[in-house]
Design a protein around this nucleic acid. Structure first.
Lengths: 348, 348
DNA sequence: GTGAAAGCGCTAACAT
DNA sequence: ATGTTAGCGCTTTCAC
């Protein structure tokens, strides 16, 4: 063991590289590289010597160097509008689960519904050469905004929201089906004046759920009153304001289908503020079944996906990384209705 | 413009590098490199020609190559237990704000309170050579678990939680002060039987807030009854279970100080399930003032930090990256009490 | 103001 | 089973 790179002073001095290990052991860097990655071409005994020495010297694999050489980074970039939303936070957790199980690490960026921030984000992601990207596209995103990534060789799968055109992989909800189920449930309980809370037509989920709501109302022979729609981002504020406005009407609705659980939680808070009880005084259906939904008082009736969209998106991305030539896939998961405490027959 | 690398077919064929741009323009790669980074040594006219050509060819900066050369990645790695918690999701958003303003990108990992997963995470972070790391250490983390990062030259700042020893930068709350304020507030309203909901002694925040609670009770001449403490992770479930157990007692408490807002939300849900009203029937104080706190029904009385800890941690990290020699800093932010609707005098 | 040349740490042919 | 060699794309002296 030489003086310059003995076992005691790792951390100080020059960094430990394959060269150092190779020199120390009197073998070539190729052997060290192969040995550290467990390549069967190298003899058992050599592999052990190399790995022991690497550990002793505190060797750390340098991914910048490897990536430069192999044009692979093992990075998966994720771009969503807001991780403060439990739906996205939970999906991100699933994504991380499957990514880390596949030896990938997550680069994260959020754009807060700003198309411009999304553009800058994707631009800088590109410089890190991720092996793949999971994107929940901002309102107004066009396929050409994303093309720079795909052209650079990074497959993109869309999560939750979908651009028109582009032909990219997609994992999300079957919005029409889910919304129709929610409407049918409320109608079967006897509701006739039903409102829709939250959602923006600028994003695919908002537009599709709005349209499906109106269609389902018409299909049941009910007036599809556009004034019963209270659009907004899928946030607590939106549901809170919507329920207050809706109940101030001359002939108020007795129930609402909500764009997502967060909007429904907001509506419940609004009801409590008005001294009313969700379920008994006003029925509410959510969408997503985030963890919080079943904890609420009362627990929220909502639409749940039996297979986690985040997990599915990550798995789809890995499959595409493995085979860039495979056909684009569109996975619109049909949710099931979980009837809990926020829906009941209308009073009186 | 040569046939092999004309403007039309970017995306196909060989990737655009500095070499290509240089060859195209008949200058050296050194000039191109300098020009693209706006180095004043290169002539105005040359710089413009280079930048125009780079744009025309669809050049993308290769950070792996640059990082290999400069030993800087512009990556900030963030390791927290759970981004599903709004407190961490909000802090992560702040961290991203300051990171992206400083031209940094976030590598994210979560460990779900598993020390082993944290270990694996930090290990793989290290291979990406982040310029710095923000870590909310898992329960039981020891300084040597983190030393591998600092020894490899990546400064670490601890966020929210703090290890014993280690001498690392830290940004978090002044737990003792905050908790004492909460207790004093409840006592001044007339409460005497006060419980503590949530928090685990295994993590610094839990231990310090528990201890501060007992100390504050004693300081006001009240029994510091250990059975009035309902420990648990700072999650909704914990508050929900705690309030149900507490109110089932023979002489139930009339109020509780909660480890964090999430625990308080859970307690509110529990109260609603019991047909009781937060504030009127039972008083509750949270900790953190997450966005949701002011939206609740009633809005949550809680402890707020006037300067965002996430932002402060990111700024501290940038300062340390700029000057690795500066003295370690310990920033324990004293929170202020925001009195809202969940605290009132005890009934009857 | 610009060019030539070396080299960051790794991997992958290819040779032996 | 192991070694030799070239080179990924960039930055940085050092010349001119």
């Amino acid at each position: 063991m030489s003086v310059e790179s003995g076992g005691k002073r790792q951390g100080a001095g020059q960094p430990v590289t394959l060269q150092i290990i190779a020199a120390e052991l009197g073998v070539s860097t190729a052997t060290v590289s192969l040995a550290l990655r467990g390549n069967p071409a190298v003899a058992e005994a050599t592999r052990e010597r190399v790995q022991a020495q690497a550990r002793a010297l505190g060797y750390v694999y340098n991914r910048s160097a490897a990536s430069l050489r192999t044009a692979k980074t093992h990075i998966i970039a994720v771009c969503v509008h807001d991780i403060t939303s439990p739906y996205f936070a939970e999906m991100l957790t699933s994504i991380e689960d499957v990514a880390s199980a596949a030896g990938r690490t997550l680069l994260l960026g959020t754009y807060g519904e700003s198309l411009e921030r999304q553009r800058r984000l994707l631009q800088s992601f590109r410089e890190y050469r991720p092996d793949g990207v999971i994107l929940c596209p901002a309102a107004g995103t066009r396929p050409e905004d994303v093309r720079m990534l795909t052209e650079a060789g990074a497959p993109v799968v869309q999560l939750s929201r979908e651009m028109v055109g582009g032909g990219l992989d997609f994992v999300g909800s079957n919005d029409a089906d889910g919304t129709a189920r929610a409407v049918a449930h409320l109608i079967s309980l006897g509701h006739r004046r039903i409102a829709y809370f939250g959602g923006k037509d600028e994003v695919s989920t908002g537009a599709q759920r709005h349209a499906a709501f109106l269609a389902a109302m018409r299909a049941h022979g009910l007036a599809a009153d556009p004034s019963a729609i209270f659009p907004g981002w899928g946030r607590r504020e939106t549901g809170l304001a919507a329920v207050e406005q809706a109940l101030a009407r001359a002939e108020p609705p007795t129930a609402a289908v909500c764009f997502n659980d967060l909007t429904a939680f907001g509506a419940m808070l609004g009801l409590y503020r008005l001294g009313k009880q969700p379920g008994r005084d006003f029925s509410l259906v959510g969408y997503d079944d985030v963890r919080e939904a079943s904890q609420w008082a009362p627990p929220l009736t909502t639409l749940a996906h039996e297979t986690d969209p985040g997990r599915a998106a990550a798995e789809l991305l890995l499959a595409r990384i493995a085979d860039p030539a495979r056909a684009a896939q569109r996975l619109a998961l049909t949710p099931v209705l979980r009837v809990r405490g926020t829906t009941a027959a209308p009073r009186a």
